[in-house]
């Protein structure tokens, strides 16, 4: 994975189209983190080191290129202390993910797919993406359920 160039002009344009997300936090982190709850805006997520990941998914064709931050970088940023993260989606989908996943694999909080920023009408603004093609053990239904899209909050425990 390499640092993605910051090509967020169109992201900014789209964000103005969604005023609700422009000034509101898109991701809230609760539980065992410093100064919980931590609410992060899209800008703050974009300030994390950005990476690129190319992988197939179970719900799309081909191998889209994702760009975003690594989940472990995010947890480091908020000084999370815990073994488990509970991820919540916009539609109240709930999934428990062991923190070891983020250590063992370069799991990404994707913000764009194929150069297009993810938005709430798709799987955005944040989609948890696993490097499925790089590790055979990740090609498993038990990991597929952890690809939480429309991620809105994380609870560290």
């Amino acid at each position: 994975m390499k640092q993605a160039p910051r090509i967020w002009a169109c992201a900014a344009a789209l964000l103005t189209a969604w005023p609700a997300y422009a000034d509101m936090p898109v991701l809230t982190i609760t539980g065992a983190v410093e100064n919980a709850p931590v609410a992060l805006t899209l800008d703050e997520l974009l300030d994390l080191p950005q990476h690129q990941l190319t992988t197939s998914t179970t719900v799309t064709d081909g191998t889209p290129v994702f760009e975003g931050f690594l989940m472990r970088d995010l947890l480091d940023e908020v000084q999370a202390q815990g073994d488990m993260v509970v991820a919540y989606a916009l539609n109240d989908y709930r999934m428990e993910i062991p923190v070891s996943d983020f250590v063992d694999f370069d799991v990404m909080g994707a913000l764009s797919m194929d150069g297009m920023p993810l938005n709430p009408r798709d799987k955005g603004p944040v989609w948890i993406v696993y490097p499925r093609d790089d590790h055979r053990e990740l090609q498993d239904i038990r990991f597929d359920t952890r690809w939480v899209w429309q991620l809105v909050s994380l609870h560290v425990q």
């Binding site: 609700a20 916009l90 539609n91 938005n119 709430p120 009408r121 798709d122 799987k123 429309q150």
Partner: peptide
């Protein structure tokens, strides 16, 4: 708006 987005997604 949110419900609209989710249904659309």
């Amino acid at each position: 708006s949110q419900r609209f987005d989710l249904a659309l997604s």
